[in-house]
Design a protein around this nucleic acid. Sequence first.
DNA 1: GTGGTCTAGACCACC
DNA 2: GTGGTCTAGACCACG
Lengths: 124, 124, 124, 124
Amino acid sequence: MKFKDNVPIYLQIEQYLNREIATGKLQAGQKIPSVRQLALKLTVNVNTVQRALQQMNEHGILKVKRGEGNFVTTDEALLKQTKDEQLTKFLRDFVNNMHTFGITNREILTQLQDYLDREGYSHE
Amino acid sequence: MKFKDNVPIYLQIEQYLNREIATGKLQAGQKIPSVRQLALKLTVNVNTVQRALQQMNEHGILKVKRGEGNFVTTDEALLKQTKDEQLTKFLRDFVNNMHTFGITNREILTQLQDYLDREGYSHE
Amino acid sequence: MKFKDNVPIYLQIEQYLNREIATGKLQAGQKIPSVRQLALKLTVNVNTVQRALQQMNEHGILKVKRGEGNFVTTDEALLKQTKDEQLTKFLRDFVNNMHTFGITNREILTQLQDYLDREGYSHE
Amino acid sequence: MKFKDNVPIYLQIEQYLNREIATGKLQAGQKIPSVRQLALKLTVNVNTVQRALQQMNEHGILKVKRGEGNFVTTDEALLKQTKDEQLTKFLRDFVNNMHTFGITNREILTQLQDYLDREGYSHE
DNA sequence: GTGGTCTAGACCACC
DNA sequence: GTGGTCTAGACCACG
């Protein structure tokens, strides 16, 4: 796992876990790896992982069971909403960024088309 | 000017100025506002602006004239390259983000299409 | 530690640390003193030290580990190159200075010889 | 005339004029170019030249005659001493620099020898 | 007026 | 504890 500089690691971990959930690698109701396992896997300090999980608990995405660990919420609606929020954020940020450079909507689409063609590696 | 948390202000200032240059609001060879003016306008400390400008000088985008101020480089090739790098970064980040959610290239385009339709505000 | 006026302290700190590395007092891969320790030792502000270290990180001489500190790079080639550059700079500056006074190469050598004899303190 | 960054220009001007005097391009008792001429030639602000000349007056190297201009002192002893001081400073700084890198006196001479051989341009 | 450097002191992220 | 960022305020060099 590689982390960007200039962005707090705990936020990147949170994003990473949200992704694992959104893509179904971690399913609703399922126990997620222990803090120590995650810390080991992500080669990051335990405290940093703790902080990420704490935030996700506050968001309701995770539920702690004392002595057992953290579990993905079974609230499917919340999960879907979280996923949508993330995707929408990606779209919004991208479009906003392009707009600040004076790129019109139509151009955004063509530029994206071009980019996907250029980068041939197929994600059909 | 509103700054995001979680990303250093001086980097956002750098990005902001690069944008002003890329969109031609600041033209090649032109003097940019003084450090103090920028600090005032962006409601940020002078040192923070300094740091942004210093980096842009190292990148060659700006040239300092002692006692006079900072000027946009006249090296049009460098300016174009910088702009392209920024746009490509937006595209790459966006596509990568979507991919991590298992979205295929085709879906990315349709989702973007949908998003642009949804947000009606016309950037033709 | 005494600093010259007329040349930025952060540059002198950089030079000082490069010297410590070049002479092996700080070895490849080794942790260097913390920013605060250096600031204390050099009786200089923390930010000033930061600036020096930041530049050395950009040069690749130092590597930061988050939350741990700064470490000398293990890239021996880079270390050697940096040392050579410094020595060559000393030689070049010295020779240039003498030339501007109309001193010929031959005279430079004899003058240096004389100076070393005059200053008897042995650096065999 | 090219000036180093990180060193005040007025000091570099002072050094430049001292050199002109030491090498006899400006002779004892001779009038030196006017402040404006120097500023023009060195592509530098008048104030900056003024500051250099003021310092040299304080050192006694120059003598102002009101309404006439600046003249090199006729005190040959002082001129010789100034020149010697400068040369000795070059030698001392150079040797000190090399010593801080653990280079012995003998090695300094051989390294200088090597350097002069390497740089073939003959200053016999 | 312009930028460049430095200080003192604060708060944050990370180990 | 570690480094990273930011602020407020000061002084210097240069035009």
